[in-house]
Design a binder for these strands. Structure first.
Length: 276
DNA sequence: CCGAATTCCTGTTGGC
DNA sequence: TGCCAACAGGAATTCG
């Protein structure tokens, strides 16, 4: 489940490896992945284009090509690999970009949830999905006043923090970590949070995301970055996947529950909402 | 309009 | 040991 730190790690490792390369042809083996294009139109449109840059917004990778822009979302298990063109296609490689230099960029995705969408450069940021996104941690518009307005809802704080139209880039792992950092119970209703608590959410989101990026993201379950390098933030997790283990702050066993259909980990003491 | 539930996928895990 | 249901989850879509 690549979230902002993992996608940023992919961007940083992938960019120097593919910049300046030109697509010779593209093999799309799972049609749904490139909707609304067909495998044929996807290939025809991108063939001959050169990768000039790779940017990122939230969990989206933005491949800036010579004519078009390719928007990629890795969803749960999407990964990129670079291999010589002669290497046989493996089971979960669904889109293979063959470059003119006999190397290839391969989009690998066990669960087939990822998406690759072609956009005209002028439309990228002003059409969905990017036009609908909120602000990343560190964005100057991510203020207490902005969140106070967005939090005016009876929804629980966990699904609100997962909502990409509000804060951008947090997924299931980092929401649990941010809520632990800010000492908020995941089921707390968003509209009941004080300005002081909202300020803590902003500070904690920045702190957690910065540290995770610095460590190359988290390698849990099947996630590894594009060059197979292992992230190290999984060792720093305070609550996520730590069911039954002692809280690193108060030693109370970490609890796992389900909140808004998501596996959710929290410390029942540190995140009780009461002062100790 | 809002919020909750469902859907897309397949490898892994847990129960019996 | 073998079988199969349950589980994992981001975000688009559907439902109430």
């Amino acid at each position: 489940m690549p979230e902002l730190p993992e996608v940023e790690t992919v961007r940083r490792t992938l960019k120097p490896a593919v910049i300046g390369k030109t697509f010779h042809t593209i093999d799309v083996r799972f049609a749904r992945m490139v909707l609304p294009e067909t495998p044929e139109s996807f290939t025809e449109r991108l063939k001959g284009q050169t990768i000039n840059d790779i940017k990122r917004l939230g969990k989206y990778l933005i491949f800036v090509l010579s004519q078009d822009t390719l928007l990629v979302h890795l969803r749960m298990e999407g990964k990129f690999f670079i291999k010589p063109s002669s290497v046989p296609i493996s089971k979960h490689e669904h889109v293979i970009f063959y470059f003119t230099d006999q190397t290839s960029l391969r989009y690998d995705d066990v669960r087939k949830f990822g998406t690759l969408t072609i956009k005209k450069p002028a439309d990228v940021y002003i059409t969905p999905p990017l036009s609908l996104l909120g602000y990343e941690p560190h964005h100057p518009h991510l203020t207490v006043a902005y969140l106070k307005e967005k939090f005016a809802s009876t929804r629980m704080i966990k699904p609100v923090l997962l909502d990409q139209t509000i804060i951008l880039g947090l997924g299931n792992i980092y929401v649990d970590e941010v809520l632990f950092c800010a000492k908020i119970k995941p089921t707390q209703r968003a509209h009941r949070l004080s300005k002081n608590t909202i300020d803590k959410i902003i500070t904690c989101a920045e702190k957690v995301i910065d540290k995770a990026i610095a460590l190359g993201g988290s390698s849990i379950r099947s996630y590894t970055d594009s060059l197979g390098v292992t992230g190290r933030f999984q060792n720093e997790l305070m609550v996520h996947l730590r069911q039954g283990e002692p809280c690193k702050v108060c030693a109370t066993p970490i609890v796992k529950t389900k909140v808004a259909q998501r596996g959710t980990y929290y410390c029942p003491r540190c995140q009780s909402g009461r002062k100790k």
